[in-house]
Design a protein around this nucleic acid. Sequence first.
DNA 1: GCTTCCATGTAATAGGTTACATGATTTG
DNA 2: CAAATCATGTAACCTATTACATGGAAGC
Lengths: 199, 199
Amino acid sequence: MALDVRTMCLGALSKEDASGYELQKNFKEGSFSHFLEASYSSIYPALTRLTEEGLVTCSEQVQEGRPDKKVYSITDAGRDTLKEALSGLPAEDKHRSEFLFFMSFSEVMDADQISRLIDTRIETVNEKFAHIKEAEQEIQTIGQDFVLGYGRAIMEASLKYLRENRHLVEGDLAAPVRTNKKNGGSPINASANTTNHGQ
Amino acid sequence: MALDVRTMCLGALSKEDASGYELQKNFKEGSFSHFLEASYSSIYPALTRLTEEGLVTCSEQVQEGRPDKKVYSITDAGRDTLKEALSGLPAEDKHRSEFLFFMSFSEVMDADQISRLIDTRIETVNEKFAHIKEAEQEIQTIGQDFVLGYGRAIMEASLKYLRENRHLVEGDLAAPVRTNKKNGGSPINASANTTNHGQ
DNA sequence: GCTTCCATGTAATAGGTTACATGATTTG
DNA sequence: CAAATCATGTAACCTATTACATGGAAGC
């Protein structure tokens, strides 16, 4: 079983019992939020199947003033299945960025639009950042700690790059440096003062 | 038209004529490789449809000792369509990382496995890095430059984080620091010496 | 009074992947 | 001699997304 929605649910349930609704919220805002996602309409069927297969159990909780809730718990068989999934090799990361696609064609767009695009981007990253910081408040395991830290490192690098290099695509209009235009060329990277890696 | 395979092809063809085969290679190794991907079986049908719609034209080139080649060129209508797609708002990034999912459950795995996982990860990132460096050799536009630089910044941050924090999930066995175990806790982030963002 | 939150689910559709099918040439 | 590269395409499948359907309670 590869990393499909079912395995994601199994993983989340191995840490805490939850309903489908809570799982989705967790995927959207919790400690997985920066590298995984799943919608309601994939989670609910997944939970049904997991129950059928005996990997989770479900207990219906009647609530007042609120719809009934189905709380799922992982079973021993479920833990075994999760462990098995974890014994394989993880597939390579998939990163799909429309923002970067857009930026590839910066010369086709006007400077205003590009600025707005970058501003929005910075906002978005900052929001995700906030999610991570919240999730860090309730860290339960070292693994989660490591993973959240990873997300933070990436987002910090991302923000730094955007701040320092946005002038490249915005044209020289708002450029912070006023030296020879032809020298403003290649982007600034953190590595400039860092040791080499690989090769 | 959202960012589907058709738009990706249109984007790539706006920079250079290419065959389906070459497009796939370009998506896999070129300047889009770190944030997009597409397989042959999605590219070929996409090109057929684009041709039907008049957004690209196709010229068959007979080759010796090699299968015939269908080289596609973008039309003016195609450029308009691309521009239109670029006038909307980009969807949020999607990042799917099985590696991080695995790491979330580091306590369920043994230290050896985790070390191997991280070693492999570092190798993979280094390989992608090499792709980017190659792609940087043949940069045509400022947009591409910006986008490749972005990829480099992220990968550098990623490698740095892995080197500096792998001991957290590997247990203290191979920890580079030998101070009080309870202090070895929270991950080191690049931001430690950097200005704050947001908020 | 409107929007958001809680809460679960189905149906239709779109989108992509895997495997299949073929085959000559170059590189190791 | 085997493997990888060049080159295009189809069929079956799987998975997930969008839209739909429902409805009370709490907050603004």
